[in-house]
Write a protein that binds this DNA or RNA. Structure first.
Lengths: 238, 238
DNA sequence: ATTATCTATAGATCTATAGATAATGC
DNA sequence: ATTATCTATAGATCTATAGATAATGC
């Protein structure tokens, strides 16, 4: 997939004969991958363009040849995958809406919202997992929150809409706070800090997205049901 | 509390006549407060010592007079309040254990764990809220995760222990994952990103810790109960 | 006499640009 | 002839230290 990888298997490619366009795209992809990895580890200010260049194995000035400045590189790293997962999730929520026959459930909506994303980290390769970790950092940060808002507000509103229809009697505040809890849990999951590994003495692993997928929608749906059972409702009876 | 605040009310203090020791402590406190605020906004690498000094209104070199280097300042900012909340939470969990008469409940344990912390942000003033936001960032970061582990592992293990006793039949993995969800939600709460404000069109506020306190333990306890109801148990029947 | 704060500055590093060289494509 | 990559370097900024000055305490 990358030049580095290709070099690891020289037998297969005697003379790749890649066109300029291909080389260009490869270079850009390598830079984005390296930046993605480093940004996810140290944040935007914790990484220098030299760090990125060294990881790729090229000169720092090449960063400026392909990207206007550091900020532009960062935004591109974020947006490269943000657009993908946003589209997938909207599609999944649309599909769920069509399938649920006008009667969405909380758990169904959460599965569409969460599982579609988790699948990317499960089978999307290391790049996706790095990007996820970056997102986990971003959300808790001032400069990152804007980027998140910009890209994911439509998806979230789509989910909120389904949740409201699944729980028409619930106070809106409760729906928003429930969503807040869901996001927080998801973002910490994406961050893969290794904390749960240590706490559980190796029983659980913070990169075990399958384990999260198997539990999260159910856990959170139960939380919402608890709100429905005990909290002040809208005053309208379904 | 700080020199700046004191200067705001000149009538009360004609000639403070503060001793060297008092001045020294005031200066250190001001530096820590300024650093805390800035680190919480931009992370450790997003803040320069000059930024901190300018916020206090002194020269950059004074940072080095009081702190060995930038890293030491950062650690001090974190530890100043970490030790306080850790002690309070352990105390609260101990008190709950004594009060529950050997029969802890999930919700009771979560209330002791969460509310004690949330109370600090509700009534501890802006410094505490800034520190909380810093913690929210740290946890999703590599360099911060270590600091968190070091200070909060004892508290968390204390909570886990109570949860296990409240749900003796539950698979350990489920307890750890449930705790993971709880922490994620708490950390995003502390980050106060303003996201929920925008999403809810002003209905909810990300600095409304009271709202979280009123909902979180209940929401999460219901999640744990869901695990108890449907997930693979330990194989032992209570 | 001691402590707190500031001035001046060294040395390192970082972003960004200009211009040279190497590689590809017509 | 055009594009990709590198060399060299300017200019800014950042951390850290040495040493001067101002303020307090005995």
């Amino acid at each position: 997939m990358t030049l580095v990888m290709a070099t690891d298997t020289p037998a297969e490619r005697p003379q790749p004969k890649r066109s300029r366009k291909e080389r260009r795209e490869d270079s850009i992809e390598q830079i984005l991958d390296a930046a993605e990895y480093l940004f996810s580890k140290h944040g935007i200010y914790g990484v220098t363009l030299k760090d990125v260049a060294q990881r790729v194995g090229v000169h720092t000035s090449l960063m400026h040849y392909y990207f206007a400045d550091k900020q532009a590189l960062f935004v591109e790293v974020f947006e490269r995958r943000a657009t993908v997962t946003r589209a997938r999730r909207i599609e999944a929520l649309d599909a769920y809406e069509r399938a649920c026959d006008g009667r969405p459930t909380v758990e169904g909506a959460l599965h569409a919202f969460l599982d579609t994303d988790l699948d990317l980290y499960i089978s999307g390769g290391e790049g996706w997992r790095n990007w996820g970790a970056l997102g986990g950092q971003l959300s808790n940060t001032d400069y990152g929150a804007e980027l998140m808002d910009k890209h994911f507000d439509p998806v979230v509103m789509r989910l909120i809409d389904l949740l409201k229809r699944a729980m028409p009697d619930m106070a809106e505040e409760d729906i928003f706070w429930g969503y807040h809890f869901v996001t927080g849990s998801l973002l910490l999951t994406l961050a893969r800090t290794g904390r749960i590994d240590k706490l559980s003495n190796g029983l659980c692993h913070s990169d075990d997205f399958e384990a999260v997928k198997a539990r999260m929608a159910r856990f959170m749906a139960a939380g919402f049901r608890e709100f429905a059972a005990t909290s002040g409702a809208k005053g309208v009876e379904g």
